[in-house]
Each structure stands twice: as structure tokens, then as C-alpha cells.
Design a protein around this nucleic acid. Sequence first.
DNA 1: AATTGAATCATACGAACGTTTCAATCGAAC
DNA 2: GTTCGATTGAAACGTTCGTATGATTCAATT
Lengths: 217, 217
Amino acid sequence: MDLPTTKDRILDAAERLFGDRGFADTSLRTITAEAGANLAAVNYYFQSKDALIQAVFARRLGPLNQERMDMLDACEARAGDGPLLIEDVLRAFLEPAFKVGHERASTFGRLLGRMYIDPGDIFERIFREQFGATKVRFLGAFRRALPELPPEEMFWRMHFLIGALAHTMAGLHHLKVTSEGLCDASNPETVLKRLIPFLAAGFRAPVPQGDTPCDAN
Amino acid sequence: MDLPTTKDRILDAAERLFGDRGFADTSLRTITAEAGANLAAVNYYFQSKDALIQAVFARRLGPLNQERMDMLDACEARAGDGPLLIEDVLRAFLEPAFKVGHERASTFGRLLGRMYIDPGDIFERIFREQFGATKVRFLGAFRRALPELPPEEMFWRMHFLIGALAHTMAGLHHLKVTSEGLCDASNPETVLKRLIPFLAAGFRAPVPQGDTPCDAN
DNA sequence: AATTGAATCATACGAACGTTTCAATCGAAC
DNA sequence: GTTCGATTGAAACGTTCGTATGATTCAATT
């Protein structure tokens, strides 16, 4: 077995530290110290800190979205000409994310969650490049699973889905503290078993129209 | 009418800039420049940057959680000894958040969303101090609205709720771009009309047990 | 008119940052 | 054994950061 290269050690350390402390609060000196590399190695292998951030994401996001596509392919092949089950589409979207999060001891999960919140052109570009095709593909699948849902409502519900996913991945520690240890997310399947039915029910909810369903004034 | 004081102008500028760029990427010099104040004013009125961050949150979170409690009081008074409607509890939790977000042109909304993601002891303390009582109170209300839900499942679903809320508030711009302008969130009621039914259906979903509902292997 | 205390100001300090430079080191090819 | 490109190393660059200091302004009070 080969020892991991300096480049990989830097990527590993950056992934972990970025997830723990955020991007602005993680210095290249901290990263290289943890990686056992020289400070200049970052600018040697990558060109800048921004490029390092992009590389950290690109390493995981490519395979992750590929696995999502593969699972969706299998779903659609199984469905044939029949309808698509919303639970299957949700699982194709969620399971790869939680699996990569779990393999990496959830460090990359926090990173993913952070990307949706953090500002800056860097993340908007990462988002477009890495998620563009995935978004189009899953939008079609969701439409096929719930054809009666108006397009606008579909966007809203996908937005809620992203939120639940990002916060669940980023804040599993929060949950363990809040529930006083009752909720344990050490196994990805445990999370999916609860998240998928919750979201599926939300997606199947009747479309709200006209006035508000409840007002507390 | 009085002009806003220097202290308030600093809080306003900090709120906006923290929401736009994050905490680490916003310097005190940028804040004081936007506020039309001197750099030293921050350390004069507040003691440090961390204390300024806390002050920014404290100014909004107190009234926000108070309004949540008030709305929940009204819900429970209306319900009497009868059951509590999950939609009412959700609205009491969500509406004040979206209203303060909307009044502030959604700048504080992004801030709130960011707080759940950003690391650091500062936010954990803010979270405990500001949301402790609210959490306990709403946990009870959710239990009363859905008494058949096991405690562990309830924690999970509240976790998903927080995620959908935080990401919806923080990423309304994302949604507008992704939906190509189809989804507009300029009115808080528009968001609530879609978020509450989605979440209510998720909370009412049957409790998952045993094996997984769907596997794509 | 003199005094006081809060508020604002220009300025400087030390530390940490991303980045750059250039010499030292290493392994493989000739 | 020498050469050469790839990699690593130590040190410094200029910048920006949060914070601290001491002078100055100014309205209210004596």
C-alpha cells in the first residue's frame, strides 16, 4: 500500500478543517501543519486558497453526483413506463450524500451544508458546475413522480428538501445535544429511514391555494 | 424623529454585512465605514467583535422568540382542553421568523440561517441563551399536537423543520435563481403558505419502523 | 466662564494572513 | 556519477485584521 501523497494529505486536512471551522477561519498554515506538509505546498499543488477549496469539493462532488445519477437510472429502469415512486427518487438523491458524509466521519457533510450558506462567487460557481446536470435530472424525476404538482410548488418543495438535507448533514451534532443523546446518526440508514418518509409526505401534501390555512390573530 | 444613534447604525450595518458575507469575512473597518462611524466606536460601545456579533443577534432574537411564545399562547388558549393543530404550532414558530426576516429585507434571515451552520463557541452560547426556553416550550406543543409520535422521532422531525426554516430563510435568493424567477418570496405569507403544509404533512407522516421503505440496489 | 464626562476621532501596535521567492533535496534517466 | 525536473523547505513579503491609546470635540452642568 502506498502512503498518501502530500497533495492528498492536504486535501484530507483541508476537508476536515474547513468542515470544522469554516473556510475563512481555517488558515493554510493550520492545514499544512495538520497534513505534515510545508506551507508552500498549497500554492505549489493548487494555485491559491480558493482553488484549494474548489479542489476539496470537486474530489467528492463528482463521484457523489454520479452515484445519484446511477441510482436514479436504476429507479427509472425498474419503473419502466409506470409511475416513479417519490421515495425512490428521494433515496437516489439523499443516500449518496449521507454515505459520503458517513465515510468521511461526517466532515464532508458539514462542508456540504456550509456551502449552501456561505457567500461568495466561489460557491456559486462550484454549485453551477457540480450540481447543474444533477438539478435538471432530478427535477425531471420529481415531476414524473408527482405530475400533478405545479412547477412553482415543485421548486419550493425541492428548496425545502435541500434545506432539510443540508442542515441534517451539517448539524447532526446539534441534534445529538438537543435530544440529549436520544437521536443517534452514526448509521446513514438510520437517518434516511426517518428523513425519506418525512420528505415524501411533505412532497405529497395537497397544494395550498387561495387564503392561508391557519392564522393565529 | 430622531436620527439613529451611532450604536444603532453600527448594529444595522453589522447585521447586513454579516448576513451578506459572513462573520469572518466582514471586518470592523467595513462595518464602521458603512455605518459612517469611526473604527474605534465598535470597541467603545461593544467590547470586541465577538460581543458585537452577540449584540446583533440579541437585538432581534429576544423579540422574535417572545412573539413566538405569544402566538403559541394564543393557540393554546384557543384550543382549550382540545387537541393542538400542528399547523397552528408550526405557524407560531415560523411566522415571527419570516416576519423579522422580511422587515429587515431578509438580511437577518440569512444571519439566522448562518448561525446554525457556523461553528464556534459564540453561536453555541447564543443558541443556548436565546433558544433554550423556546425549544422546551415548542417541544411540549409539538408533543401535544402529535401525542402518538415517539420522542426520538419528534426530535428528528424538529431537526428537519429547523433545516427547512434555516435554509429557506438563508437561501431565498438561491431559490429565485434556480426556479428562474418563478418562485418569489417577497411576501412572508407566500412562503408560509407553502412551508407550513409541507412540514405539517411531514410531521404527520407514519412513523417508520423496521426495515427500509425502499432500496435501490 | 470653567468644568466635566460622554462621544468621536486619527493613529499605531502586534499578530496572523495568503502569497512569493529561492535554495535545498530527491529520484530516475542517461 | 552526473544531470535534470519535480518536490520540499525556510524565510520573507506586503496586506489586513482586531484592538488599544490618547487627543479632541461638544453639549450640559456648575
